[in-house]
Structure formats: structure tokens, C-alpha cells
Design a binder for these strands. Structure first.
Lengths: 343, 343
DNA sequence: CTGTTAGCGCATTCAA
DNA sequence: TTGAATGCGCTAACAG
């Protein structure tokens, strides 16, 4: 009751029963090569003694930990959490657990996390690169050691030997902006994120493409690339942006749900009527757009499904014959525009 | 490049250098008992060969994994994620990683997760019990095995040998309701969560206490205990509630941020003016209340800090002499009412 | 059907 | 200052 108890191990059961450790091990494994009566005895004794197998010893011996390492840029972004939920959902079916760590939007942290995973704690790695991640040697190193890797979301460069899952950001934003244009909008503002991040670059490209294709004037003044890495700063940045405009936008396409909500809030405060005077579109559709008044039209990104897919690919890699030249898979998931009251 | 590579191990380095494994091990440990020149040789060779220690082997040998197991009822609740972020933040300082798993609001899953952690994968466990959790024998079992445990948030019963961290839910809601009363509100509605959950029971108690203490009439019709376990259902449930009222509330105290937001949305749609005709208060304050228009007054719960505290207590337990009768600590964190436009 | 033995990779005690 | 040997708890190949 007071001192840390010594765990019951196979040996203890074996000794009590006067049989060998191997037999106990096999019995608990339900190996058919052990007599049923013996198996029963072993199970009863194990239960009586409160036996619990030692996962670490198992892992050392088997070379498998049944843990998937997940590295996301940040916790406080519902998208990543939703992906994790998808991963967890799929992984659990196959008896894998997930070890989540945040790179805190820092390349250095990402590298450290990766190295820590390289120490054999995980069977494979799922990673969403930060905006700072320009070189991919740290990832290639991991792959070269034979550790399965799947990348998702912000993929600047395809890495040989890893699978990739993302959406077609350019197309998704193109469609959304096209929708606004077809509604007759002329002064369409763009609120993007950190310029270094591939997903934001692509969403910007889609915006530009739609504007150009339909010959809509692009006003530099109506374009903002948010630099902020946390919510409060985003809020301030967006407020400042709209306060200083000389041109009144009649629509705003934004690159995250949060930007969309902050935009709506700011516009409402400035007296704009949504959607009568200005339309707003968000990106992600992680639940909040539905609650806001007016509810927000969003590009819906299949986050949970992305998590499931990513986990599926990783577990497929585990089961591949013997890593013989893993052919990388590049999966693009579909997005759709969910229409609500803000447009 | 094609086959899974065999990892470099101590033995490989030792052989190359014609020294013993023990010396290599000590050298890499920077053990002063090994000659500096040897240490240098070893480090160089280790680097050249791309040596990476095997964490599993280390753990088996040392009996420590440096992993903290975290069990939360669900992922899609910002409160829990924020707590995890706090845990991660603190734990990382002490070189611990966190293994998060969700009990999906199910006692059975909670038990399973706990058992899976009992297999020696984690050094200690942080747990937030589900609403279904009535018996605590599964937790006591873990504690009896000498595994450190810290509980947080929804603690129905104090468990001997575990630390506890929570807020004073009754006092927090009392203050919030008192604030509404002092504003002159007479028909104060209450939106709570699952009745089985201790935190909601306590928040309800605080509401009742304030109402009684100030002699305010309590209308049964204005009280709702949400049963839903996911967002869409909550939405429907709350809409239905407000649609059916014969008494018009002049204030609504809600037990989560989400209830608060859904309430505001529903009331706005029904044509209520906030805060002129009706005030709304949320509980949690996890960022969304600030964005909504009008912004929402909230009971602010220190989620990140709760995570840090919980991690601190667990790591303290790790370092305690030798589990000699761990005296459980019960910590109550402070809440405060953050005033915004909805009141 | 069961037992013996040899690892898994590292830390550590005991000798030298 | 270094090496040899043992153990952490379990699996699996090989015998019997």
C-alpha cells in the first residue's frame, strides 16, 4: 500500500504453476499449441495475481510499439484537432495509439519532435509541416531510416518515400471566389494567412485566377496577408485592415474560419450589413460558422476524413511487404462550398 | 535505400572503436569516469554512424518511459484541448511527452484506456472522468499499482492517492447569476449540461443558490439540462427549448461557451435584442465569446493553467521520495467573470 | 504440448 | 579508466 509495488510478470505466474515462462506466454497469447486446460489455469492465475503485460518489454522484443507519432503546428486550431480526431478514430481500430506533439509553428521544434520520434518510440509518423519548414532533409532522414511517414495539409514539396494528403487549395478558393463573382460582386477582398505557408499561397493563387479569368479589377488595398500566429493578434490585424480602407468591399473571401468570423465581426461593427452590402466566406467549416449570426458560408474542408485517410495510409505502409521502394501516394480530398446566410 | 535499415546500436560503435559497449554507453552519457579523449572519439563515431539511442530499450532498462498518459472525454471541446496544451507546455520543460486518448464520453472507453496505460507505457496518468463514471475502482486499481494519477475537471468523488484539480463550479455560477440579479433581471433562464456530470450539477446548484438567496422566482420552464453529446444535437435542443417558452426570459445563464453562443444565435433569430431585452452569459471563455456579435460575457475558466497545474502535480509525484503514502492534493483554481456586450 | 535458450538495446554492478 | 557480465520482461526459434 505504501511502496511502489513490483509488477507481476510471466515468471511469477510460471513459478506458481510450476511451468515454464514460455508456456505462460503462449497460453496468454491463446496459442493453439498449448493444452486448453493449461491455458485456463494460466488465465485464472494471471487474473488472480493481477498480471498486466509489460508493453515496453513487448515492444523491445517485437520491434513494434503500436504508437503513431503525430506532429501538428499548433493545438489551438480546430482543423488540426479535428484531423487528430480522425487519426485517432482510424488508428484505434487497428490498435494504435497516438502521441501528439505540437511544433508550435517552429521549424526547430518540428525537427526536435521528429528526432525524438526517431528514437524508436513510434512505428510511424504523421506530420503537418510548419510555415517555417523550407528544407525537408529532416523528414528525408527519417524516411531513409525506414520509418513510415505521411504528410498532410501544408505540403510545399513532395518528399520521396512519404505519402501526402491535402486538398486542392487553389481550386477550392477559385470556386469560392467564382461564386462571389457570379453573384455580381466587384470589389472582392482577400484575407489570407502567412505568406510563407503553401496552403495560403495556393488559396491566394485561386483568388487571383478567378479574378483574372472573369476580368475583375483587383485592388491591392483589398488584399491582406495576416502575419499573426495567435488569435488576439489576428483580431487586431483584421480590425486595422478594415478600418483603413478607402474602397468599400462588397465581398470578402477569407482563408480560415477564424479570419471569416473576425471579418464579420469587424464589418458588423463598422455598420456593414451582411449579406446585403457585403458577403463573407470562410475556409475550413469547423462548426463555428454555423453558430454565428449571420451564419457563415464556408469552404468545407474534410478534416476528420483527412485524419482518417492519413492514418489509413500510414497503417498501409506498416503492412507493406518490406518497404520495397515505397511508392508515394498523393491524395487530394474534395472540398465543397457550404452556402449560408453570409452570402 | 530499399530495405528497412537496421538501426545503429551501441555495439556497432563499440566494435568500430574496439572498445566495450559499456564504455560507449558511459561516454554518451558524459559519465566523468570515461577519459575525455575516449568520449570525443565515441561522440564523433556516433555522429558519423548516425547513431540514435533506442528509447524503448532505455525505458525497459530504466523503468521510465517519460510519457504522460492523458485521458479526456472528447477532442471536440476546446476546454480539453486547452488543458492538453497546458499539460504539454509544462511537461515538455521536464522532457515528458504526452499520449492523449479520448474516452469518447464513455465509461467503458475510459476503463479501456486506463488499462492500456497500465501496461507500462506511461509513467503517470492525467484523467478527466466522463459523466458516466460513477465508480472509481478502475482508478483506484491504477493507484494501487503505484502509478501516479492526477484527476481534473469533473470530479465526482475524491480518490485517495490521486491529486485533484478543478474550479469551484458552484461559486463561479453563483457569482455570475448574482451579477445578473444585481442588474435587475427577474426571469433568469438556466441552460445546463448532462445532469450526471458533476460540473453541471454544481453549476446548477450555484444558480439555484443565487436565485434563492435573492428571492428570485425560479420558473421550471426556464430551466434546461442539455442531454446532447455533440454540437448539432445541442443546437437543435436549444432551439426547441426557446421556441417553446411561454415566459420570456430577460437573462440566460449557460454552462458552456457553446450553449451560450447557441443561445445567442437562437434568441437573435427569434428577434430578441441582446443585451437590451435579454442578457446571456457563457461558461469557459475559450475565445469564441469575444468574436461573436454581440460579444459574450463569460465565466472565464483557467484552462491552460489547469493543464499546467495538473502536469506539475503529476511530475511532483514522480519525484516524491518513494510513493510513501502520497497525500492527495485538492487544488481549486480561480475563475472570474469577464464582462462583454451580451450583458 | 512444453521447456530451454537466445536475443531485443541499453544501463549498471562488479572486477580488473 | 575500461571491460565483462547480468538484468529489464517478453518473444520466438529450436528441441524434445
Amino acid at each position: 500500500m505504501t511502496l511502489r509495488k513490483r509488477r507481476v510478470k510471466l515468471e511469477d505466474i510460471a513459478r506458481k504453476l510450476n511451468i515454464s515462462i514460455a508456456t505462460v506466454s503462449r497460453a496468454l497469447d491463446k496459442n493453439p499449441r498449448v493444452k486448453l486446460s493449461t491455458r485456463d489455469k494460466v488465465f485464472k492465475m494471471a487474473k488472480a495475481m493481477g498480471y498486466m503485460p509489460n508493453q515496453i518489454a513487448k515492444s523491445l522484443s517485437s520491434g513494434k510499439t503500436n504508437i503513431i507519432g503525430v506532429i501538428i503546428p499548433r493545438y489551438d486550431e480546430p482543423f488540426f484537432i479535428e484531423v487528430c480526431r480522425g487519426i485517432d478514430h482510424y488508428a484505434r481500430e487497428y490498435d494504435y495509439k497516438i502521441l501528439i506533439s505540437s511544433s508550435r509553428n517552429s521549424f526547430e521544434f518540428e525537427r526536435e519532435n521528429l528526432i525524438s520520434f526517431e528514437k524508436g518510440l513510434v512505428d510511424g509518423i504523421i506530420l503537418s509541416p510548419t510555415h517555417e519548414t523550407e528544407t525537408f532533409v529532416h523528414i528525408k532522414n527519417i524516411i531513409n531510416k525506414g520509418i513510415p511517414v505521411v504528410l498532410f495539409d501544408n505540403i510545399r514539396e513532395e518528399v520521396q518515400g512519404a505519402d501526402h494528403v491535402s486538398i486542392e487549395d487553389d481550386k477550392a478558393s477559385f470556386s469560392a471566389v467564382e461564386f462571389l463573382i457570379k453573384k455580381g460582386k466587384k470589389r472582392i477582398a482577400f484575407i489570407g494567412g502567412i505568406k510563407e505557408k503553401k496552403v495560403f499561397q495556393d488559396r491566394y493563387k485561386g483568388y487571383l485566377k478567378a479574378m483574372q479569368e472573369y476580368n475583375i479589377t483587383i485592388y491591392e488595398e483589398l488584399i491582406l496577408h495576416c502575419d499573426s500566429l495567435d488569435r488576439e493578434c489576428e483580431d487586431a490585424e483584421i480590425q486595422k485592415f478594415f478600418n483603413g480602407l478607402s474602397i468599400k468591399p462588397d465581398a470578402v473571401f477569407t482563408c480560415t474560419d477564424n479570419y471569416g468570423l473576425l471579418t464579420m465581426k469587424t464589418l458588423l461593427k463598422l455598420g456593414y450589413k451582411i449579406p446585403e452590402e457585403v458577403s463573407v466566406i470562410g475556409f475550413g467549416d469547423l462548426g463555428l460558422g454555423e453558430v454565428f449570426v449571420p451564419s457563415m458560408t464556408c469552404v468545407a474542408q474534410p478534416s476528420f476524413e483527412m485524419g482518417q485517410k492519413v492514418a489509413e495510409l500510414l497503417i498501409d505502409q506498416f503492412n507493406e511487404a518490406t518497404d520495397v521502394n515505397h511508392r508515394k501516394k498523393v491524395i487530394k480530398l474534395d472540398t465543397k462550398l457550404v452556402l449560408r446566410d453570409s452570402t
